Amino acid sequence: PAGAAAAQEQKQADNKKVQIDQKLAAKLQKAIKIYAGKEIKLKNFSEKIEFSPSAKVDSVDGKYAIRFIIDNGKIWGIDEKVTIDKISKEDQEKILTVLKKAYANKTYAFNKEVIMQRGYDGEKEKLGANLSYTLTGKDFDVSFAKENSAKELKGTVGGFKIQFTKEELDPKLLETAVKATKTAFNHDLMVTNAQLTNGIGWMLEDKDVLVEMERGELTKVSHKTRKAVTTNKEITDKEAKDVVAPLAKELFNMD
């Protein structure tokens, strides 16, 4: 079984790989030289980016990565691993303020390593205007737009995700999710993973059930292992009214 599992993992890794032809390799090499100002050795294959039409190729030393669209080979971004001191204290405070506003009862400390992402114009073969940073810490990651062609986005926090243990969750929130899974599937939710996205969307799950909520309201309850025609049993409109409305009324005093 161990051998079979290893073979399966290898197969999954191979499925993620995207081969790079000579023409694309030359473009990638040119892009990284424009960015870094020197020759950087790149790997000879790239990997698909999950839930995206793009792939990224890493440098051999692991410091850089280039992102491109798989179908047409158009390069659109370059990543570099840098340290937190690249980001001003003022900007760090700005980011912390957003995280604390989203969920105050948690400590946020940034890891030293940061991913700096620079836009690249694959057609004109020059660096783009956009410059952003992805910062991580224990239980969270957040992106920050330092420079952006859209003026209103410059200096703002983009997307962020915060992970929670069951013990850290607001009791009301947990109670809503537990009641929803009990009503929908007669299932006792034992939260193994909880995540808040962009300050509004909650996702709580265990091995069988996934609950999604937005601004305190249930939006979806799905079952992962029901051998139904669909892979996920989603609550119908009628069930939603029967389950969600009374819960919302009871827990959040909403009509």
Rank of each mutant, 00 (worst) to 15 (best):
M190T: 10
L174I: 07
E90L: 02
L218G: 01
V178H: 03
K238L: 13
L96V: 10
N148T: 09
F140P: 00
Y133I: 05
G159L: 05
G119F: 05
T136W: 03
V243E: 07
I235F: 12
Y35G: 02
V114E: 02
S132H: 05
T225Y: 09
K33R: 15
Q163R: 10
T219C: 01
Q12K: 14
F110K: 05
G199K: 10
K48F: 03
M116R: 15
D255Y: 06
G158H: 07
G137N: 04
Q22H: 10
K63L: 06
N193C: 03
L174N: 00
D85P: 00
F185L: 03
N148K: 01
G62N: 10
N15F: 06
K224E: 06
P1T: 12
K241N: 13
D61K: 09
Y120C: 04
A180H: 05
E168A: 12
T83N: 14
E152F: 12
K48C: 00
L42N: 06
K43E: 14
K43H: 07
T107M: 07
K249H: 10
V98E: 14
Y120W: 05
I95F: 02
K48M: 08
D237W: 08
A184T: 06
K16N: 14
I87S: 05
H187A: 00
V229F: 13
K33Q: 15
